[in-house]
């Protein structure tokens, strides 16, 4: 099953008189359950592409289908609902809510985005805490844990709604090499356990090698699609 399909997708930013073509007509499709990475130098359009897939930014032209829905023309209120239902996000600087504990951060989407009953919510958060190995840090605040631990919590938060697609823009850019590798392998484990599609971007070749499918971007164009060294998922 295809979870993301793009045809002649373009994105132009208009700043005053200048038009910046950030994505210049790309075609690709991603199968559900894949572990995909977009790589490329700074300014190549990785964030732009991920933002379009994540329904945070509408394309300028072309078609884009995400989780079976044409999202190219979604209005902002519809896209907020769509994101809340189907997509999980992991950010470069973790973006946990500082006034909430680890437990509450993971619980947040189940309360404020979806509307889960208390008992089910507790169970689900416990399950995710355990999956990312943070069960004994549940009552700490983000300010009291390390960067790698924060990103584990962020992974749990992205998965807690049982999202079928998780997007991560440079999830390891603020982590040291070892921690970065551990986060990437955690994501992969999660893909296996929750049957979720992971799409992440990076410019770090060492991180890329963990991906199963690698799309190389340059100057807003897709250069190659290759199987990474991470092995193919069937």
């Amino acid at each position: 099953m295809t979870i993301v399909a793009a045809r002649q997708l373009t994105k132009e930013y208009v700043a005053g008189d200048i038009t910046v073509p950030a994505i210049r007509g790309v075609d690709f499709s991603i199968e559900a359950g894949s572990f995909v990475s977009f790589v490329g130098p700074s300014g190549s359009g990785k964030s732009t592409l991920l933002n379009m897939i994540g329904c945070l930014d509408p394309p300028t032209s072309g078609s884009l289908e995400v989780v079976g829905k044409d999202v190219a023309g979604l209005r902002s209120s519809e896209s907020a609902r769509f994101r809340g239902e189907h997509i999980g996000f992991i950010f470069q600087d973790f973006n946990l809510i500082p006034v909430l504990t680890v437990f509450e951060n993971i619980e947040y989407p189940l309360i404020m985005v979806q509307n889960w009953p208390v008992r089910k919510r507790r169970q689900q958060v416990e399950r995710l805490l355990e999956a990312v190995g943070m069960q004994d840090q549940a009552n700490k605040y983000p300010g009291q844990i390390s960067g790698g631990q924060k990103q584990r919590v962020a992974v749990a938060r992205a998965l807690v709604t049982n999202a079928k697609l998780v997007l991560a823009d440079e999830p390891t850019a603020n982590l040291d090499r070892d921690t970065a590798n551990r986060i990437i392998s955690l994501m992969k484990t999660m893909r296996d356990e929750f049957d979720t599609t992971f799409i992440f971007s990076t410019h770090d070749p060492k991180v890329v090698k963990n991906a199963e499918i690698v799309f190389a971007l340059e100057d807003g164009l897709l250069q190659t699609e290759s199987n990474g060294q991470g092995g193919s998922h069937v």
Binding site: L56, R83, I87, F91, I97, Y108, P109, V113, A158
Partner: peptide
């Protein structure tokens, strides 16, 4: 923070 909660789907 507002960007974060809006991105993850808070209405």
């Amino acid at each position: 923070e507002i960007g974060t909660i809006a991105a993850i789907g808070t209405s």
